[in-house]
Design a protein around this nucleic acid. Structure first.
Length: 577
DNA sequence: TGATTGTGCGCG
DNA sequence: AAAGCGCGCACAATCA
């Protein structure tokens, strides 16, 4: 069937054993309705993606639930509206003065469903196998969508919330596609690295050769044949026995001590970490068919940053980057933003002096040139301290200089901290709002306000207030940086979609596999992304990455005179430096 | 025995 | 080198 003109939204949901697609105009009025078989869902989307209704936005309960089958079938939608993610934003935002009606609909409050990353489960539509938190029925979707549209319309700045919902939803699509594409992984290179650094692979349950010999060195240096470097309490006792006055076994404390055991112990800790976190077991569990496929969890962090689940995608050690390798004939375009959060702070605060410091490329050098601090290292620690709420040490000492030079930027984070200390909430540039303090917060503060409050009560309340102030201080910057990154990703996704598929491999084309012939996002981590691209497109992709960053900056901050500098590299691996 | 908590360290 | 934000994961210790 052909769709009537004027379609702005396709709202989808279940109805008995079928999927219902409801086409709506820009005001949300229903124009047409179609029922399709569950198995025909990807085809129903594919049909519409080809015609003029491709600009419409798909509205659905939860992106993985609807988009996983699309990704598997090689179908991509241009835009969506994720009701679950947008519900969370609109429910809490400060930009809507009256409590919106959707706050009563707690069935939409479900957290991101965390599925075991079992391939079959991803495509299982039976709720018996996959527990999804939110409702998926078509009537639920239509009703919630109406509530969300009303909520946005009632906002003090509807434009920002629309932008945030669009960016959040684009991120949800990208998260599904990142997993579908996977990060190209060179298993041989990884295994070579393991053997070079750890020694040969243990046969059964034991330590790799080099780790075992280091453990022996540690035991002999301690004169303790039973010392166990894997157990912090036991190790601490062993260290005490040889007269080392340390309070923990952490690296930073051990580094300060002089003793023959320290060198092998620090080396052991480093290698043991590689062995347990990214050793052979990790490789066997997480890398299949030359791809590492973590589960990305959009908005999984309170600030709106993404979290990940499985495989530790947020913590791939730098030394393993050489194992990230493009397919033959393909390249990786790796890009990260230089000093994203300080730049975001400058733009939010409208701090022209700080923006000026960023102009040369290295924002920290710019701060030195401005005379606010003496060295690049100082500039970095001072600025991080300002955004994290440091009070002591080098960072605390350098803050006054920073405050004098950049009163607007510092004023913004200081004000966010004061609001948090009072128990208030703060919001990001686009309106994502921090959750209010929990019940315990009020109890503790009230106890400290009593006339007969003890010293301990007062201290606890003050400490709690300070903790919360540091959280809200950082929330506004980290959360807005996450918004910039979403805008960057979303814009880039659209640019990559415009690339012509390369090659004429009919088998690849017919297989329907997403991304087999086009540049695609392969990794994302807060301020960094990797695109896997046919080699011949790499330069164009690098340009698209830069253009997307510029577009994101304009989208969020309009004409504010600040550019977000990228470090873009093209190569067969994702190694930095 | 299995579930929870704490430690340490990787990432931004 | 750890002060000061946000995470996930592995392992050992501890609790039930």
């Amino acid at each position: 069937m052909s769709d009537p003109p004027g379609i702005a939204w396709f709202v989808v949901g279940d109805d008995a054993a079928a999927v219902v697609v409801v086409a709506c105009d820009a005001e949300g009025r229903e124009l047409s309705r179609e029922r399709v078989d569950v198995a025909a869902w990807p085809d129903a989307v594919r049909r519409r993606a080809a015609d003029e209704t491709a600009s419409a936005r798909w509205v659905w309960s939860d992106t993985p639930r609807w988009d996983d089958p699309l990704a598997a079938a090689g179908v991509r939608v241009a835009r969506c509206h994720d009701l679950r993610l947008c519900h969370a934003i609109l429910r809490d935002t400060e930009l809507i003065p009256e409590a919106p009606a959707l706050r009563a609909h707690t069935e939409w409050d479900a957290a991101a469903p965390v599925d075991p990353p079992v391939a079959q489960a991803l495509f299982d539509w039976d709720d018996g196998a996959v527990v999804r938190g939110v409702p998926h029925g078509i009537d639920d979707a239509l009703a919630e969508f109406a509530r969300q549209r009303a909520a946005i319309a009632s906002a003090s700045d509807a434009g920002r919330l629309r932008l945030l919902c669009a960016a959040e939803s684009a991120g949800a699509l990208i998260a599904v596609e990142l997993r579908a594409a996977g990060l190209p992984w060179d298993v041989d290179a990884h295994e070579r690295l393991l053997v070079e650094t750890l020694g040969s692979r243990p046969l059964a349950g034991g330590r790799p050769a080099r780790l075992a010999s280091l453990a022996e060195d540690i035991r002999s240096a301690l004169g303790d044949p039973k010392a166990n470097p894997d157990s912090p309490p036991q190790l601490l006792r062993s260290l005490h026995r040889v007269g080392l006055a340390v309070e923990s076994t952490s690296r930073w404390e051990l580094r300060e001590v002089e003793h023959p055991v320290i060198a092998p112990l620090l080396e052991y800790k480093k290698l043991a970490r590689l062995f347990s976190a990214n050793g052979w077991a990790w490789l066997g569990e997480w890398v299949h068919d030359r791809r590492f496929r973590p589960v990305y969890v959009p908005a999984g962090v309170v600030t709106g940053r993404w979290a990940s689940s499985g495989g530790g995608a947020l913590q791939i050690p730098r030394m393993l980057r050489r194992a990230v390798r493009a397919d033959p004939g393909w390249l990786l375009v790796t890009a990260d933003v230089a000093q994203l959060e300080p730049r975001v702070l400058a733009a939010m605060a409208g701090d022209l002096q700080l923006a000026d410091a960023a102009r040369g490329g290295d924002l920290y050098e710019g701060i030195v040139d401005a005379g606010a601090v003496g060295s690049r290292a100082e500039a970095k620690v001072a600025l991080l301290g300002a955004m994290y709420g440091a009070t002591t040490g080098d960072s605390g000492r350098l803050l006054p200089g920073l405050r004098r030079a950049y009163p607007r930027a510092m004023g913004l984070v200081d004000e966010a901290a004061r609001t948090g200390e009072r128990g208030g909430v703060v919001h990001t540039w686009l309106g994502r709002t921090s959750a209010p303090p929990g019940d315990r917060w009020g109890v503790v503060q009230a106890a400290a306000a009593e006339p007969d409050a003890s010293r301990a009560d007062v201290d606890r309340a003050r400490r709690q207030g300070a903790d919360r102030g540091r959280f809200t201080r950082n929330f506004v910057v980290q959360g807005t940086a996450a918004e910039w990154a979403l805008a960057w990703l979303g814009d880039l996704r659209a640019r990559l979609a415009a690339f012509e598929p390369v090659g004429d491999d009919e088998a690849a084309a017919a297989s329907g596999i997403l991304f087999a012939r086009v540049p695609h996002l392969a990794f994302f981590l807060h301020d960094e992304l990797i695109v896997h691209t046919p080699a011949r497109c790499a330069e164009q992709v690098a340009q698209a990455v830069q253009d997307a960053a510029d577009a994101a900056t304009r989208l969020l901050f309009g004409g504010f005179p600040l550019d977000f500098r990228l470090d873009v590299k093209i190569g067969p691996t994702a190694e930095k430096e």
